[in-house]
Amino acid sequence: MKRLAAALVIMAIAAAVIFWVLTMPQRLDATVTANADAGDAARGERMFNAGGCASCHAAKGAKGDDRLKLGGGLALETPFGTFHAPNISPDRQTGIGAWSGADFMNAMLRGVSPEGEHFYPAFPYTSYARMQPEDIADLWAYMKTLPVVEQANLDHQLPLPFRMRRGLGLWKMLFLSDQPVVAIASGDDQLVLGRYLVEGPGHCGECHTPRNLIGGPDTSRWLSGGPAPEGNGKIPNLTAGAGGIGSWSVKDIAYYLESGFTPEFDAVGGTMVEVQENMARLPASDRDAIAAYVKALPALDSQ
């Protein structure tokens, strides 16, 4: 009996140690972050628009220059609780002005904070992990030029099990990857660019791909839509399967991203309005690439 108890205690300790090691936040190698502070702000603006940073981190409904005040904004209501988008303005106290470029890169590519904690994946680093380090350096340079906003962060409202960030280490083992989702024959530069913009900075899959029970993206149903994570309604299927947008041409998709009008001249609505307005700020060649990639998606019927 004593022996059994001792064995159980040892096993419990071993399990705890294994959990601790497995869930340890993994920072990037210093060689990856070497140029994190040497980005180009002008190029970074493109990544800022592609990434839709303002949609969550600026005040709700902000238009014009107010989009650049990233004091935090959106309350994202999810099945796991309510997440409040934090202040990412260059304020040193309440924002991220005291971060280094390497800190920012670890946040974007690894979902790890400067304090070495896991961020919740409401911050879509599962997509940003596919970005090139140079693009993140450029984005960082641009973000440092934005207005300082002094505004304290709100705490996320989460039920107890989800308040322990350490467990996210396991979640990341399942869902965090820098590899592309859709296979594309090498040599097609436009499709590769479109895939990069959609799967990486654009983080389209965060809404347009359904999630499984533990909130991970179901990549077998990539970009095929599903129920809206918040409120009522549905997220559209972007593929050519039944219920999708197979009748749209590449030009139609690019025009929708530029103008907000569908081929039937219905207009974009809901949270997609912000996304579309960000896409409209990109070079036309980027919208064409996104459209080409969307048109090339494997067809999946809506469920």
Binding site: P236, G269, G270
Partner: peptide
């Protein structure tokens, strides 16, 4: 004129398909 479409749809229309 065209800006009115999404200005209203952003708040008052939900996606169903």
């Amino acid at each position: 004129v065209a800006g009115n479409c999404k200005a209203c749809h952003e708040m008052y229309r939900v996606q169903k398909n």
